[in-house]
Nucleic acid binder design. Sequence first.
DNA 1: CTCATAAATGAATAGCATTCATTTAGTGGC
DNA 2: GCCACTAAATGAATGCTATTCATTTATGAG
Lengths: 237, 237
Amino acid sequence: MPAPPAPGSTATGETAVEDLARRRAGRPVGGVLDKSRITRAALELVEKKGYDGLTMAALARALNVAPSALYNHVKSKRDVLVLVEDHLAALVDLSAFDAEPWEEAVRKWAWSYRDVFSRHTPLIPVIAVLPVTDAPQTLAMYETVSAGFRDAGFPEERIVSSIVALESFIFGSAYDVTAPADIFDPGSMAEATPSFTAAVRSLAEQGHERPADVAFTLGLEALITGLGTLRNQVHQH
Amino acid sequence: MPAPPAPGSTATGETAVEDLARRRAGRPVGGVLDKSRITRAALELVEKKGYDGLTMAALARALNVAPSALYNHVKSKRDVLVLVEDHLAALVDLSAFDAEPWEEAVRKWAWSYRDVFSRHTPLIPVIAVLPVTDAPQTLAMYETVSAGFRDAGFPEERIVSSIVALESFIFGSAYDVTAPADIFDPGSMAEATPSFTAAVRSLAEQGHERPADVAFTLGLEALITGLGTLRNQVHQH
DNA sequence: CTCATAAATGAATAGCATTCATTTAGTGGC
DNA sequence: GCCACTAAATGAATGCTATTCATTTATGAG
C-alpha cells in the first residue's frame, strides 16, 4: 500500500525526496516525466494552442515522449485537467484577506478568480464537481477564504454556503467574458421581442465598459451586501 | 438562396407548410428526418443514456438512419445541442411574471431555470456563449423576463446586466446540484485547513436540506435584494 | 415524362483517449 | 560486482468519435 502524500509535497504531487533521487540518477535531458513537468507542459500547450490543442498526443509530443508514457503518471486526461486547475488556483489573489476589510477582500478575490478562469472556461465543468482532496492549492484557497469569513463574523454554519454561492456566480460569470459581443442581438426577431430589444439597445448605447464587467459588478456587489448581513459582528482591526 | 425562417416557424425550425407537404408525401414510418424529430430523439437519448450516450451515431440509430443523413438537417453536433437547449428553455417556468410581484417572479424563474439545467449541465458551456438568434425559445424567455423587470421599475439600461448576473449565478449553481456529496471533505488535509474543515463540519452537522439548495437560496435572496434596489418605482397591482 | 432538388446512403478520413505486452534502465540488497 | 526488483518508456492496437463526399434514391413540379 503506498504511503499517503508526504506533508512537504507540492501542488503537483512531487516530493523533495523523489526529486533528489531523480537528480542523483543523472538522466540525460528530456524524456523524464513527472507531474510537475506534465502540468507545465500542459499549461504551455493550452496557452499556445488552446484547449482544443491539449490532447494526450500533443502533450506527449511536447514532452518528447510517447502518449502512453503519460499514463504512468496520470490515470486519465481528466487528471491532467485537474493538475492544470490546481496550478491556476494558486494564481488567485488572496492577499486582501490579510489586511483589508471583508468586503474588499471578497471583491478582490472574486475578480481575480473570475479573471483567471475566464481564460480557462473548459476547466469549469471539472472544478465545479471536483473533490477538494484532489486539488491541494484549491483547498488552500478555501482555507484562506473561510478564515476570512470567520474573522469577519460569519456564523460557522453559513460560511461554506456563502462561498459556494459566490463561486457559482464567479464560474457563471467567467463564461460571460468569453461570449461574443453581439450575443444578445435579436436580429430579425427584434419586433417580436420589444422589451428585450429595447433593453439591449439601451445597454449598448451607454456602455463603455465591457458588458460582462457591468453584470459582474452588479451581481458581485449585490452578493457582498446581501451575504454581509449574515455577519453577527464587525471585523475589528 | 433559401428563404428566411417563416414567421410561423416553431422552436425546432419546422413550418406547418413543410409538415403538411411531408404528410401528403405519405412516406412510410421511420427514416424521415426533420429538426423536430432530431430534437425529440436527442432528448430521449439523453434521458436514457446521458450526454455521453448522445453521439451522432447513436442519434442516427435511434432515428433508423445513417449518421451522415443528420448532416442534411444540422451542420454539426453543436447544432443538435442547441436544438436541445432551446427545447429545454421552453420548460422554464415564467408564469409568475404574469401576476406576482417581481421578487417572487424572479425567485420562481430562477429555481425553475436552475432545476431544468442541473439535469443538463453539459449544455451550459453551449448556452453561455450562444447568440440568442439561434435559440428562439430562449429569446422568448428573455423577452418575458425583461418585460417583468421593466414593469417592476428597473431602469432600462440595467435590465440586461441584471438578468445576466442572475443567469451566471444560475448556471454556476446548476453544477453544484450534480456535485458529489462529499466534495468538500478535506480528508487527510483536515489538520492543514482548520477553518475550512470546521466550516464544512458545521454545515454537515445541522444540514437537513441539500447543501446546493442552501447555497442557492442564500445567493439568490442576496441577488434579489441587491438588484431590487435598482428599481426606481414599485410594481403597482 | 422529365428534370430539379431534397435527402439518404455507405465508405472513407482523421483524430481521439486509452490498454497492453514488451523493453529499457537504474537502484538497493547481497 | 552481480541479481532481482521496480519504475518508466515504448509502439502497436482498439474502439470510439465527428465529419466529408461522391453516389444513389425518391419525390413533387412543370
